[in-house]
Simulated scan of single mutants.
Amino acid sequence: MIKSKYNRPYKICKCCVMDTSDEDIIFDSNGVCMRCNEYKERILPEWNHGKGHEKELDILIKQVKESGKGKKYDCILGLSGGLDSSYMLHLAVKEWGLRPYVFHIDAGWNLPVAEENIRRLTDKLEVELHIEKMDWEEMRELQLAWFRTGLESLDVPQDHAFIALIDKLSRKLGIKYILNGYNIATEAVADPASWGRGGGPTGDGTYLKDVIKKHCKKPIKHYEFTTGFKHKFWIPYVLGVKTLKPLNLVPFTKKEMTETLCQEYGYIPYGQKHFEDLITKFLEGYWVPTRFGHDIRRVWLSTLVITEQMTRDEALKILDQPPLSEEESRELFCEVAKRLEITEEELWSYHELPECVEKFKSQEKLYDFGIKIYEKLGIEKRIRR
């Protein structure tokens, strides 16, 4: 059963499906939430569903190719096996003729279907896959540490590892362009800030080190850290490494992405965004809805609604059903406990922890300031509130 806990009378947006499970949501006089209004005012006019950006895209591709002359690779691309990064790889290689250094982080939580999808894409596109295998004992301890905090955002250990590896590769390889699969079509709306209170920014090494200091029972020696300063300022503005989001310059829908990948590579869809990863599937499909009353599908579905890929009624119909069946949830619960080498009783004890009130060191204010600047400069295309 999914929890419902609100600090005010329940209300849902008249345009999308975001609701008062976000404690900070604001509605206008017509009952439309601030995300829908921000999308219409700030995002849509420039994006225009990816249409009209042909010249801009052509210039970017030429710049990437020019920077890679005489080198084995002209860009870096992280491949999770998810829909966005997979479609990004397809376009980069097959449509644009780029030569990406393709890497994948194996944090110990890969599902077999994701590994099969990755293999099918890289084999058919004939690109070399570089796998960074994390130290499982450290990853296990890090994951347990985040469970012990009682926080909602529990996939920080592997998300930070991805960001840190990007930073490391950009320096090590001397490649000046990173292809990022973020796109407005499937990710315009970010998770509400109120859902992640108590923690810190995923890319903030200060936050991670404080959690490790307070909640890790074993030393962490091999894990790679980065910082917001390094990731957001030093690497792009001093070293000149640019992160590109070219999917925003191409017209497509989620349905078209899926159909292309299925037809070209025999890609197997996961049913829900981020369900290619065991721990993320467990957290987003079971843990967060039942412990915190937050359904990540509201974010993804609202994006599809406001970008006109789905009707609001269709989204509401999906939300009428839980993300996972009771049987699937039970299987995942058992599997996660087994992987973490703890009893199911211990895992359940974390589920029943009181809401986290512990304070962790972080650079959150600096991150928030940076995002506001990026929004004013037109660099930040995501609705972050």
Rank of each mutant, 00 (worst) to 15 (best):
3 K>D: 01
12 I>E: 14
16 C>A: 13
20 T>R: 10
35 R>D: 03
39 Y>N: 11
46 E>T: 11
52 G>Q: 10
54 E>H: 07
57 L>K: 11
64 V>D: 05
65 K>S: 01
73 Y>T: 05
74 D>E: 05
77 L>H: 07
80 S>V: 12
97 G>E: 05
105 I>A: 06
107 A>F: 02
109 W>M: 10
114 A>S: 15
115 E>Q: 12
127 V>K: 01
129 L>P: 04
129 L>T: 04
130 H>N: 15
132 E>G: 00
149 T>A: 10
151 L>M: 14
164 A>D: 09
165 L>F: 12
169 L>S: 04
184 I>R: 00
203 G>T: 08
210 D>V: 13
212 I>W: 02
213 K>L: 13
221 K>L: 13
231 H>E: 05
232 K>G: 00
240 G>N: 12
245 K>M: 14
254 K>N: 07
259 E>P: 00
260 T>M: 14
265 Y>V: 07
266 G>C: 09
270 Y>H: 10
271 G>R: 09
275 F>W: 12
276 E>C: 07
278 L>E: 05
281 K>Y: 03
281 K>M: 12
291 R>P: 02
301 L>E: 06
302 S>H: 07
304 L>W: 04
309 Q>N: 06
322 P>Y: 02
324 L>R: 01
336 V>S: 04
340 L>A: 05
340 L>P: 01
341 E>N: 15
343 T>I: 13
350 Y>Q: 08
353 L>F: 14
354 P>D: 08
363 Q>E: 15
364 E>A: 14
378 G>P: 12
380 E>H: 14
384 R>E: 03
